[in-house]
């Protein structure tokens, strides 16, 4: 939590700077559709854990679910979009990935749960590039891994009886050829 407090302060400082910038621009641009394209503009999102976050428009643009909202509603600064399936922690991770231009190195730092939750979030928010990125990252984690590892990764409870599993391994024996189970 301390970490969050610190960075909020840093963000606050940045915010005043950006506000100045925004004000400067507002004189030129107008606040309608064209104004929305403005760089540095932020959109307020409420996450599943009730946190309201301001997110840069360039990132929000990748969230097609919100784009449809924006298209439909006459929006102004005070409008807040609820994203009820995404926690603030995951939203922060997503922002980091987008800003890091989807570098697979970044994905290596994510925990298994984070990977899965980002995939779910990417699907919900309809972020195509993020979805592609995170699906690839998950595939990289589980490829060439044992059945047990994959079960553990997805948190799957094995509900096959021993006989059923053995039978299934026999049916799909070709898939298990040349694999060392460890």
């Amino acid at each position: 939590m301390a970490e969050r407090g610190e960075s909020s302060e840093a963000v606050m400082l940045k915010k005043t700077e950006e506000e100045k910038l925004r004000k400067g621009k507002m004189i030129v641009g107008d606040e309608s559709k064209a104004g929305y394209e403005e760089e540095g503009k932020k959109v307020k999102l409420v996450t599943s854990d009730g946190v309201t976050m301001e997110v840069e428009i360039s990132i929000v643009k990748e969230m097609e679910i919100i784009q449809t909202f924006i298209g439909a509603t006459d929006t102004d600064d005070s409008f807040i979009f609820p994203i009820s399936n995404v926690s603030s922690h995951i939203l922060n991770q997503i922002i980091e990935l987008v800003k890091g231009e989807y570098d697979q190195e970044l994905a290596k730092k994510l925990s298994h749960d984070e990977l899965k939750e980002i995939l779910v979030a990417a699907n919900y928010l309809n972020m195509k590039t993020l979805f592609h990125f995170i699906a690839t990252a998950i595939a990289n984690v589980i490829q060439n891994k044992s059945v047990e590892f994959v079960r553990d990764f997805f948190g799957i409870v094995n509900d096959f009886t021993e006989e059923e599993e053995a039978e299934l391994r026999k049916t799909n024996a070709w898939a298990f050829e040349g694999v060392d189970e460890d």
């Binding site: 939590m1 970490e3 969050r4 960075s7 909020s8 963000v11 606050m12 915010k15 932020k42 307020k44 999102l45 599943s48 854990d49 009730g50 946190v51 309201t52 976050m53 301001e54 997110v55 926690s87 603030s88 922690h89 939203l91 922060n92 922002i95 980091e96 800003k99 749960d113 939750e117």
Partner: peptide, 22 residues
């Protein structure tokens, strides 16, 4: 770490922690 700006926190800290530890 925190990229988005948190401008309001309606939930008590305790719930947040449990949420993060799924």
């Amino acid at each position: 770490m925190t990229q988005g700006k948190i401008i309001a926190q309606e939930m008590p800290r305790k719930i947040l922690v449990t949420w993060n530890r799924i």
